[in-house]
Nucleic acid binder design. Structure first.
Lengths: 199, 199
DNA sequence: CCTATCTTGGACCGGTCGTTCCAAGTTAGG
DNA sequence: CCTAACTTGGAACGACCGGTCCAAGATAGG
């Protein structure tokens, strides 16, 4: 019997993700969300229930739509080291140029901001971290299978190290770091993990 | 002839640094600063001139009092690799335990937040980055002098990579990352830069 | 002691924050 | 067509934002 929503909540959430991503969740007011999405405050609160909840939802959406596909591609890429290199090259490119240049990464940015907030937000951060590290480890295992890795390398620690490098790339790119500089740093770390001097 | 300040601006700025560091500059209101410092709004604005200026001043103070001494110690430590290891061990310890546990780093946190703000703030970020990278390079040079480094290692890129690792340690520690995990990652990167399997 | 100069407390400003609420509108089963 | 169930626009809320202002107080050279 009841009336039905006059908008697509999924599409709206995508808009909110972009807004929080670019401008920062804390520094984005409800007014701006209303303006951008075209929704009224009523619909916004009825659908997402408050700003903190909305922030958590946006973070989850970002993880699913932005991060996950890239992580999955990394894990599925069986080439070994070239897969990891490709991951970072695309990461740096996405962070320094194109549509989302200098936006950083919503998850990375949230690390520095969200003080307490919902536990759900903190869990999203951890899930993101675990997912990226797992993908890195899978790619490293593939590299090891082809004998491309330095013997004695701790795969788990190496995966964590590469994950941290990715976070730092996200961070520094938002402050205007140059792509070449970031790539050189990544390459230095990767070279340290390999046996031969391949690129 | 005139009256004289009834407080010590330096001590007040230190209090503000701690406040911004722990709670985040954007999410800390003037009211809370007034409450913490005991100053009145008048004195605050007469001395520091507005919140944005205060934030820039706090960032500069943090750089001088917190970062610089550690960077200088790193650059002055001629032991080579052990100097870098010690730097990271102390960093992780400071980020995960003690008085400032889980506060992260004010400079790192600012990367993710400060959208535009004062150009002065952006400059502080770059100065911090350059200072840490320079200290890292100096330490790496010392390590190379003793033959502890893998031949062909790009010192500049390696210094940048270690700097990025430090940023990521700051970031992740704020979200509750475990010290052992962070240390293992750092060690993996460092091992990749060395020739022998020393620690 | 006087006075010019600065500091201080705290009231006050308009604006914005996130949130709530309700009358009017829309929907679809009966 | 009626009506119960839901959505929607938009007014309104109290709280807080960063910032300003001024009367009263403090200071020290004259």
């Amino acid at each position: 019997m009841p009336d039905v929503k006059h908008f697509d909540p999924d599409a709206v959430l995508d808009q909110v993700v972009r807004l929080f991503w670019r401008r920062g969740a804390d520094t984005t007011g409800i007014a701006e969300i209303v303006e951008t999405t075209g929704l009224s405050r009523s619909s916004l609160y009825a659908t997402f229930g408050g700003k903190t909840r909305l922030q958590a939802a946006a973070l989850g959406r970002y993880l699913e739509r932005q991060s996950r596909p890239v992580f999955d591609a990394l894990a599925a890429d069986t080439r070994g080291l070239p897969a990891i290199t490709a991951f970072f090259e695309r990461l740096v490119a996405a962070r320094c140029s194109g549509e989302h240049a200098r936006w950083g990464c919503l998850v990375t940015n949230t690390h520095a901001t969200a003080g307490g907030a919902l536990p759900e937000i903190r869990e999203h951060l951890d899930r993101h971290h675990d997912a990226l590290r797992a993908a890195m480890r899978t790619a490293l295992q593939a590299a090891r299978a082809e004998g491309g890795l330095r013997p004695g390398l701790d795969l788990e620690a190496a995966a964590e190290a590469l994950t941290l490098q990715a976070y730092a790339v996200n961070l520094r790119s938002r402050a205007g770091a140059e792509a070449a500089e970031l790539l050189a740093a990544v390459r230095a770390v990767l070279d340290g993990f390999t046996t031969t001097e391949e690129r």
